[in-house]
Design a binder for these strands. Structure first.
Length: 478
DNA sequence: TACCCGGAAGGTAT
DNA sequence: GATACCTTCCGGGT
């Protein structure tokens, strides 16, 4: 029986963080992926390395990396079993910890206590110490121009390491995002790192064979949102750990390969939008892009930086981890509902590095789409919108503004292809029918040849659609 | 109060 | 510099 690690300075917590940590698809993983500096360093970055490189680290199973944030799901299990033994903890329900190291590190003390009654504090403290030590070591590494955008599976050894961000700056000029700890964390880190760049998604193939994909067969590291939701259903943030890199810091994949973040396979990556996003990591995105999104892809890559594409990615997440935020009401007709407007806006804000994003602003962007016939509002239903364009079509239209002169294609594919995602909070069957009618009332361009699956909105399915230009129609708005 | 709308101005990237 | 695509702010309506 070891001494239980003593309490550490608490990291900021809030109900939002708690929410983030567990029930929401917006899992902590994404934050680490995007802001891999590590939350534990926030506010502590200026501190000297904390505890004496504590014993636990040396006593950890040899298979475990020193930095718990790089642990895979299996590593987490190993750690928990080790902790059980080491600290004579009550048996831990491993099912409650179907997550990778990054995810478990983001759990609050309360979260851990809930998942491991009687042991949460111990686990929390051990993890915090490990994280802190890892941070300390990394701070001591020479800084590099590499943007913190990249993930940091760096080995803790100072002798071999991939590019390392300057950890010292993390705590400076913090400008907390008020609404939630997660957002605060994002704000902190983004303010320091300018790194909100979404990593490219590994190819589906790259994910194959990974045991963690059982519940999430298609992972693609994508946006922050694509990370496994820690909703208890086994989000698999750990995917990235095995697939994106190995723990030695060597990998065929770029270090920031977030394979843990799952979004539909052909989903585009979020390309850096600003030079500063890539300034620190020359070649990073190019390399990644080449790896995961080879040029042979016939599909224009919108990279998830466009709102409609972003929404599509969330809607079409194979694991349906974002249905707490946005979900199809009728996938066939392109009708979806924003289940959590504020949360979705937050995600979008993080995606775009606009931390003050809210639903009001995001909805303004959605209304912008009215003009170009990408979206329309489902009348009478709050937070319900309808895609008027197939995503493939959109991606193949170089100039979206041209859509102003094009009527919606109004695809209405056979309904049997893709099961609709039902919105959990409220039954929508009747609404779906209503929406279908609503959909039908629009002038419909049927001059479309569809081959293969006729999923209107699934960007994860390659639907070859030949769209003939539609006769101009009067703008629906304006 | 929240949602919804759309004008206007501005920012950033291409 | 032009353009696209928002972002931000706002006044107003429901």
């Amino acid at each position: 029986m070891k001494l239980v690690p003593g309490p550490l300075p608490p990291i900021p917590t809030s109900s939002s963080m708690d929410r983030l940590a567990l029930p929401l698809p917006f899992s902590p993983d994404s934050l680490f992926w995007r802001y891999p500096l590590g939350f534990a360093s926030i506010g502590q970055a200026q501190q000297p390395p904390s505890s004496p490189l504590f014993d636990y680290k040396s006593q950890l199973p040899s298979s475990l990396a020193s930095d718990p944030r790089v642990w895979s799901r299996e590593d987490v299990v190993s750690f928990l079993r080790w902790a059980e033994r080491e600290f004579d903890l009550q048996p831990i329900d491993l099912d409650m910890f179907q997550m990778n190291g990054k995810a478990i590190c983001l759990l609050t003390r309360t979260d851990l206590a809930e998942r491991a009654p009687g042991s949460g504090d111990v686990l929390y403290n051990v993890l915090q110490i490990l994280v802190r030590e890892a941070n300390s070591l990394q701070r001591m590494l020479p800084s590099s121009p590499v943007t913190p955008t990249s993930r940091h599976p760096y080995p803790l050894s100072p002798h071999s390491h991939p590019p390392t961000p300057n950890w010292n700056i993390i705590a400076q000029n913090a400008d907390p995002f008020q609404s939630s700890h997660a957002a605060s964390l994002a704000a902190h880190l983004m303010a320091q790192s300018n790194s909100v760049t979404l990593s490219p998604a590994p190819s589906v193939d790259s994910q194959a064979g990974s045991p963690q994909h059982a519940d999430n067969p298609q992972t693609f590291g994508h946006s922050i949102f694509s990370m496994g939701g820690s909703n208890g259903s086994g989000s698999n943030p750990s995917d990235s750990d095995e697939d994106g890199y190995d723990k030695t810091g060597q990998s065929g994949s770029p270090p920031n390969t977030p394979s843990a973040y799952s979004l539909p396979p052909p989903l585009p990556t979020m390309a850096p939008r600003s030079p500063k996003e890539v300034a620190g990591s020359p070649g990073m995105f190019k390399a990644v892009g080449r790896e995961f999104f080879p040029n042979e892809s016939p599909e224009p890559n919108t990279n998830g930086r466009l709102l409609w594409d972003f929404l599509q990615q969330l809607l079409n997440d194979p694991a349906q981890r974002y249905t707490n935020y946005i979900a199809w009401k009728n996938r066939d007709t392109g009708v979806f509902k924003i289940v959590d407007p504020a949360g979705l806006a937050k995600l979008w804000g993080i995606q775009k590095n606009h931390l003050s994003m809210n639903y009001d602003k995001m909805s303004r962007a959605l209304r912008y789409y009215y003009r170009v016939n990408i979206l329309r509002k489902v009348q009478g239903e709050r937070h319900c919108y309808q895609f008027l364009r197939n995503p493939n079509e959109l991606k193949n239209i170089k100039n979206i503004s041209l859509l102003r002169q094009m009527s919606p294609t109004n695809l209405k594919p056979p309904a049997q292809i893709v099961p609709n995602v039902t919105i959990k909070p409220e039954p929508v069957e009747a609404e779906s029918e209503a929406n279908r009618d609503d959909y039908d009332e629009k002038p419909t361009d049927l001059s479309i040849t569809m081959e293969g699956p006729t999923d209107l909105s699934s960007s994860s399915r390659h639907v070859n659609i030949i769209c003939s230009p539609d006769p101009p129609i009067p703008p629906q708005h304006h």
